[in-house]
Design a protein around this nucleic acid. Sequence first.
DNA 1: AAAATATAGATTGTGCGCAATTAAATTTTA
DNA 2: TAAAATTTAATTGCGCACAATCTATATTTT
Lengths: 150, 150
Amino acid sequence: MGDKYEALKLKNQLCFPLYACSKEIVKAYKQYLDEIDLTYTQYITMMVMWEHKELRVKDVGKYLYLDSGTLTPLLKRLEEKGYIKRQRSAEDERDLIVTITESGEALKERAVKVPEKLGACVDLDAEKAQALYSILYEIIGKLTAHENDK
Amino acid sequence: MGDKYEALKLKNQLCFPLYACSKEIVKAYKQYLDEIDLTYTQYITMMVMWEHKELRVKDVGKYLYLDSGTLTPLLKRLEEKGYIKRQRSAEDERDLIVTITESGEALKERAVKVPEKLGACVDLDAEKAQALYSILYEIIGKLTAHENDK
DNA sequence: AAAATATAGATTGTGCGCAATTAAATTTTA
DNA sequence: TAAAATTTAATTGCGCACAATCTATATTTT
């Protein structure tokens, strides 16, 4: 009862439900994303491409908190599917520019119902959704604050 | 401007900060878990073992929302490290019984400071922590509700 | 101009995470 | 009680996710 190991019990963890919830949501996406042949990570990558049309790999990574180890193979797969193009920048050969294709733009139309379908699965009160959203970004902010120092 | 694609923007996603936050937290754990040679998933697995001492793989999976595809190799690694034992049940040979070892029990002592160290990183208001906790379990409940039907 | 430093992306290796399949043991049902 | 259905874990294959390292290019310093 209230022993010194209380903090090590699963039910007293805040991080565990976060981890579990994230996984379950990605799993819930699968049924809808399968229809448009995207994984969850590919889907959020397309999201930033739909919005920005053209980005360096580095910028995609900044939006998604992902590095080149994840993005390089993922972007190659999206290129194989025809949704993006990858080409080195002429001004700076170190940069790789990712550009959305027509096929990629067209995919947006097929993805447009995904958010509401998922919303129906989760079905969260608007107030709670807002609370969740702001708390999550608060934590993300704290954890990534020291990312651009040094 | 409130176009039909508004719902496909990253900033309007609730799932994305959940996914990102979960990853960043696991990353934050790494510095502390490295010291005791555990990954995050191994850590939460040890958590259920510290609490229950002896469980079937199936039960570990129920607590953690993980299946044998993830757990079988993970438990083998924990066995190699000497923290658990794996043996078939005598009553029902299908069951694999996972038991904590003395070394596994001893590890608990080395892990006891991890929760507060991580708490310091996240540093979340108690009220927000409670709100987050209950909203997350509400979502998990909705997403896993139909898991035991069929 | 040469050397040192910095930056961007690619590569490598390890460990999940999960769908789908397989194999073995047990339980149910006909 | 033999056949069918179910249960449990292991296996396979694929795609992240990330630390560490490497390569190429660009910038800064000397």
